[in-house]
């Protein structure tokens, strides 16, 4: 596989805090990769190591096969970055900022720039200090999508956008992917990642706890099964592939491991099925599985399946 981003046992410490703890991330060329995790999990730190702003303490980070710390400036020619919290120069207009960022990269495609300004509905004549958070983000997004680059590093790029602009953003990412660009999309908005990304990595406390295609992840997770039966079924509560079972007369509601599905369905068929729904887990449910203990600690019931 031709990896655009690869980290091996990446460690980054800030004083006593270990922000990245042997992190292994791999993003193949041309894929749109979702980078999921709550605030403070290490998403931005990973991206800043990949940008050569932070120096890793242990392990390796590679961008296009090169060391981002040593060759930062050269590598930056091939990528565009949208920070999670965009700070603009108060005295420069949005238009000036977009032009400057384009020229640092070697030139601005004026047609593309104007088209994106139009699509994102952004006034380029306002000064940086008078833009709202969403509009600051739009300035960075226009500059990034207008750039002719191989890789887009997007760190929670839609946190300040309204749903309408969120849709425009999704379109732009899809176009970039169709042109063969690689996209790393850090986010905690599941629907966005589900709509855009083929592969996903879930980060927790500086470690990648799960990585793979969404299809694979779904397969490995439990589906929610609800059925109305004709006759009572026995022994379901003892089945090791069945969880969270609630039986109310002939109605049952449970979650089932993917590996146990055929076995459970066979048992239900024997009892006779009047109605049946079976949903694959949403990305949110997969995600919550890895964070269930933290939710429990903050008093929220585990979200898996229910």
């Amino acid at each position: 596989m031709n990896a655009v981003i690869r980290t091996e046992n990446l460690v980054k410490r800030f004083g006593h805090v270990t922000a990245l703890d042997h992190l292994n991330l791999e993003v193949a060329q041309g894929e749109t990769h979702g980078f999921l995790g709550p605030n403070g999990a290490g998403k931005s730190t990973t991206i800043r190591v990949l940008l050569g702003m932070l120096r890793s303490d242990e392990g390796r980070a590679e961008l296009f096969g090169a060391d981002p710390w040593k060759d930062a400036a050269e590598l930056h020619r091939r990528l565009a970055y949208v920070p999670g919290d965009v700070a603009l120069w108060p005295g420069l207009t949005g238009g000036e900022t977009i032009d400057l960022l384009g020229r640092l990269r070697g030139g601005v495609d004026k047609g593309k720039r104007d088209e994106l300004l139009e699509r994102f509905d952004l006034d380029p004549r306002k000064k940086g200090r008078s833009y709202s958070k969403g509009n600051r983000q739009k300035v960075a997004l226009v500059a990034a999508f207008a750039a002719d680059v191989d890789l887009l590093l997007l760190d929670e790029p839609t946190s300040g956008l309204d749903p309408l602009m969120g849709a425009v953003f999704n379109e732009c990412v899809k176009e970039a992917a169709a042109q063969g660009r690689t996209v790393l999309l850090s986010s905690h908005i599941m629907s966005e990642v589900e709509a855009l990304c083929e592969r996903v990595s879930i980060i927790r406390k500086g470690v990648i706890v799960e990585t793979g295609s969404l299809a694979e992840m779904r397969h490995l997770s439990r589906s929610r099964l609800r059925a109305t039966l004709k006759n009572p079924v026995r022994g379901l509560e003892d089945h090791e592939g069945v969880h969270d079972l609630v039986a109310d007369g002939l109605d049952i509601d449970c979650t089932v491991d993917a590996s146990a599905l055929d076995d459970v369905l066979a048992q239900l068929a024997v009892a006779g099925v009047a109605g049946l729904t079976c949903e694959p887990p949403s990305l949110e449910q997969i995600f919550m599985r890895f964070y269930g203990d933290e939710l429990a600690a903050s008093g929220v019931h585990e979200g898996n399946g229910k």
Partner: peptide, 15 residues
Amino acid sequence: TVGRGELVAAAPVTR
């Protein structure tokens, strides 16, 4: 400190 330099630091510019 106010984070404005991040956009420039991510561009093809040496330290």
